[in-house]
Every structure is written in structure tokens, then in C-alpha cells.
Amino acid sequence: MSATELYDRLPDRGGPAQPLLTVRGLKKYFPIRGGILGRTRAMVQAVDGVSFEVRKGETLGIVGESGCGKSTTARLAVGLIDRDEGDIIFDGDALGDTLSLRELRRGIQMVFQDSYASLNPRLTIEESVAFGARVQGLSDPMGRAHGLLARVGLDPARFAQRYPHELSGGQRQRVNIARALAMSPRLVVLDEAVSALDKSVEAQVLNLLSDLRAEFGLTYIFISHDLNVVRYISDRVLVMYLGEVVEVAPVAAIWARQAHPYTRSLFSAMPSMDPDNRTEEPPLTGDPPNPIDPPEGCRFHTRCPFAATLCGRKAPQLRKIGADGHLAACHLHDPTSGHPKAGKIA
């Protein structure tokens, strides 16, 4: 079966210049309940004012440490959880206005880290893959499922009848990818989708993802804590810290220059891979603060080597710092901020 037969692609509405996905001011606080009455005791500020765009055909990488809000951002954008505030615009149509939740979910599919939990253990993998196509009312769901299984490297003759527990982690992740594609989405969100795989298998799945993107004209959001993987797969990278976006840039630009002090620390925490030049100093001390009670002002100021008095009082805004769409939220990069070192550090 050819790519066009396997894929029942949604029409491109706004043309190539219009971002496929725009989110503006996205916010989600989770209540923490406790005590005998189950009253809300505190709020986890999981995502707090996140804005970004995903352009058609690109891969946007999202990086940051565990708990910084990557998965919550993704789930909000896909409509899996309700946002407290913010706009979600898919190819020009705003959710809740000209776009229904159902339409949003048809356009965006998600693949998760835990390959096992995402599959129904009682369905054979052909049934799992055909299910989505059937729900969407697409033609020949089973033929489509077999075509997609073959496409992700699982020979239907050998694998179609198997149950999830009869597959390896890498094979299950291929099934999850096939299942996402069976919905013919335009955007696929891959949330730590290769993180649980062994290195040798991870490379196979990354090759597959690159091929599928080209073949089906897909757009990806690729979430990972592994900077090497993000560099390999992404066009642009978004860095999050404690529920906020601190930096966005094209891959080459951010590898050449990490503008935000947190980004710089995150990059220096990567193992050196050089036995003659091992890391000698940890780039940061201590653990990330608790998102229930994030620091005032710049959320990074409690760990930042450049923090000034101003940083604990005033939150910096994301602003343009380079011609190539490089954005950062740090007073150092705002000449008018009043930070004593503003404009003096590259």
C-alpha cells in the first residue's frame, strides 16, 4: 500500500506560512488535596503562561528536567486535559471557537514513553492499530493497519496476531507509532517516546520517525530529556524550567550559544564523553525548587550564578535576542532591565 492509500490526510487550510499549532498563555494548576475533608491544600503550578508555535513540517523539541511541565504542556495542547487559561489554535482555528475538541484530537496524536501502558493488553496489535481508523470511519481499517505495521517494520504475517506482552519494548513502541498514524494526524506529539528504549533500539526508532515524517509530511513535537537525541531530531528547541518557557531557538543556534543561564547549566550537565576531559564542577548545586511554591521573580534566581536583586523581584519576559528567532527570558538579555550585567554577557 502506498503512503497516500495509508494516509487520509486532513486538508492544509492556512497554507505553509501559517503555523500548524499556536499556543498562547497556556496555564494549568493542579490542586493537591489532603486532610480528612480532601480540601485543596496547595496548587502545583505545572504550566504557567506557556506560548509557542509549531510550524508546518518542522520538529519542535521540548527539553527540561523532570516535573518542569513538558508532558502537561503536551497534554494541554492535544486536548487530553483541560487548560485553566490560554488559546490553542490549530491551523488557524481556535479551540472552542471554530475548532471542536474532537477535531483537535483528530489532527494531533500522541505517543508516550510507556509503550506497555498505552496499549490495550487484551487486543491483538492489528486490532489496536485498526481501532483508531475504525473510530474515524476511515475505509478498510484492517488493510490500513497491516500496511502501517509493515511500514513501521513489523511484518503483519508474523506480528499482527500478537498481544502486547509478546513484543519487546522497541516493537511495542513501533505499534504505538503505527496506531497514532492510523488516525492520519497532521501533528504527532512524541513524549519521551524513545526514552525507555535501549540505545541500540532507540537509533532504529529514530530512523523510523525521520522516514515517516518525510513520507507522510508530518509535524512533530518531540519531548525528551536527552539533549543529544533532541539535537538529532529537532529543527527548533524549546527549554522549560518550572512551568515556564525560558528559551526557544533553532537547534544550531542554541548549540552554538545558550543564552539563558539555565539552558547553559543544562547543557553543561551533559556527560563529557571524553575520558581525558571529564566534568570537574557541577554546573548547578541543589535540586530544582518545588513547583507548588516556585520562587518569586525569575524562577531560576535561587540557582542562577548571575542572579541580581532585581531577579528575585521581577519576572523576565521572553524576548527576541537574535535575528534567527532566538528568544530568551532573562534580564541579562534585556539592556533596559536594570540588571547590573545586562547586555554584558554573551
Binding site: E65, H225, M270, T279, P282, P283, T285, P288
Partner: peptide, 8 residues
């Protein structure tokens, strides 16, 4: 652990 904690 987080990357910045792992290296510590």
C-alpha cells in the same frame, strides 16, 4: 535523577 542533579 535530573541531569543537573545526576552530575552532582
Amino acid at each position: 535523577l535530573d541531569a543537573t542533579v545526576q552530575i552532582q
